[in-house]
Simulated scan of single mutants.
Amino acid sequence: MTRQFHKMHGLGNDFVVFDARAEPLTVTPALARALGDRKTGVGFDQLIVLTPSPAADLRMDIWNADGGMAEACGNASRCVVALTGAQTIETEGGVIEGAAIGAEVEVAMGEPRFDWNQIPLADAMDTRPLPLAWDELASPDAVNVGNPHLCFFVQDSDAIPLEKLGPQIEHDPAFPERINVNVASVEPDGSLKLRTWERGAGLTLACGTGACATGVAAIRRRLATSPVTVRTHGGNLMISWAPGEPVRMRGAATHVFTGTIDLDSLPA
């Protein structure tokens, strides 16, 4: 079965996008893993499948490269707005609103959630800060912005061995649905320097929901003011938020190429 796809990225966080609104596409964990293989498939951080929605202009389902699913993806949301012109996108984590603003795209990711059972955590505990530690990473804020995040504030985010600590924290029993892990440092100009270990994808050049969660956590801690620039290895995102309001994210969305692939030819 041959299908058309789009390769896109938001600040280096890359996606394969299938528009299945007119022609349905069944995705299994095995197919997602095969497509995500950068040697024998196409390669991506997340696979995006677009389908019709009764609640929005379209629905976006998100598969990680390991075959698991995510509830929301900020960088992918911007890419879908840029690709389709959709202004509302239904996700498992809620409805996202978006619009092109000049050369960039802004999306409203909904209101962040902070209660322990909204993250979710395995046990009731404070989430600001969370009374847990893993080696030099301690006392993060827990924030759900459509999917769950921990936000650690450190002196130098580049000095943290996230390749080691990221998978340990992601799979800690404290997080029954696993967790995304962010380490951020406050720069002299008031911006945030961020690295993210994404649940199911590992280290990525940028994570949109990670930038949203970390921006919100920094504003709540009064480490930053809204809007705040979040600097990732892939580029910059502008995060705006006030209590009781949705968190908004603005940044680039890039279409790389359109291709076709024979799905039946992929390794089982």
Rank of each mutant, 00 (worst) to 15 (best):
A253I: 10
T204F: 03
I119G: 01
S77E: 03
F175Y: 10
A70R: 03
T254H: 11
D115Q: 13
L137A: 14
T204H: 01
L237Y: 08
W116N: 07
S265F: 02
T88W: 03
D264T: 15
T209P: 10
R221P: 06
S139I: 00
R250C: 06
K39V: 06
A30D: 15
S157I: 01
L192T: 08
W241G: 12
L25N: 10
W63R: 02
V49T: 07
H255Y: 10
R221Q: 08
A76I: 02
W241T: 14
N64F: 01
L203F: 11
V256K: 12
V42P: 03
G110E: 11
D115R: 15
I119A: 04
G146N: 14
T127P: 04
C79V: 13
E97L: 09
D158P: 00
V247A: 14
A76V: 01
Q155P: 06
G93S: 12
A72P: 10
A252R: 09
Q4W: 02
T258M: 06
V27I: 14
C79G: 12
D19K: 07
A133H: 11
I179T: 05
R250Y: 03
H233I: 06
I48D: 05
V154Q: 11
P176M: 05
R250A: 00
T2I: 14
E136W: 01
N13P: 01
D158L: 08
N147F: 11
Q87D: 06
S77K: 06
V27T: 04
R248H: 14
F175A: 08
L263G: 09
F152V: 11
N75T: 06
G259Y: 07
D45I: 00
H6P: 02
A253V: 12
H6V: 07
K193S: 03
A20T: 11
L137V: 13
P227M: 13
V186L: 07
A20I: 12
A86I: 04
Q4R: 05
A22L: 10
G12P: 00
L47A: 00
D115A: 15
L130M: 13
A65Q: 13
W197M: 01
G146F: 09
P131E: 04
G235I: 10
T51H: 06
Q155N: 15
P120C: 12
A76W: 02
D158T: 11
A55S: 07
E23M: 10
A218D: 04
F257Q: 09
G234M: 04
P24R: 12
I101P: 00
N147Y: 12
I179W: 01
I119S: 01
W134L: 05
V154T: 14
T84Y: 07
E187Q: 14
T88D: 02
D37Y: 13
L150N: 14
A86Y: 02
G244P: 13
S240P: 03
H149I: 01
A122W: 01
G190A: 08
G94M: 13
I160Y: 02
L237W: 07
P148K: 09
G102M: 10
F18H: 03
I169A: 09
D123C: 11
G10D: 06
N64E: 02
L58R: 08
R3N: 02
T204A: 04
V186A: 03
R3F: 02
T40L: 15
K164A: 04
Q118T: 14
V17H: 00
T225F: 05
D141A: 14
F18G: 00
E163D: 15
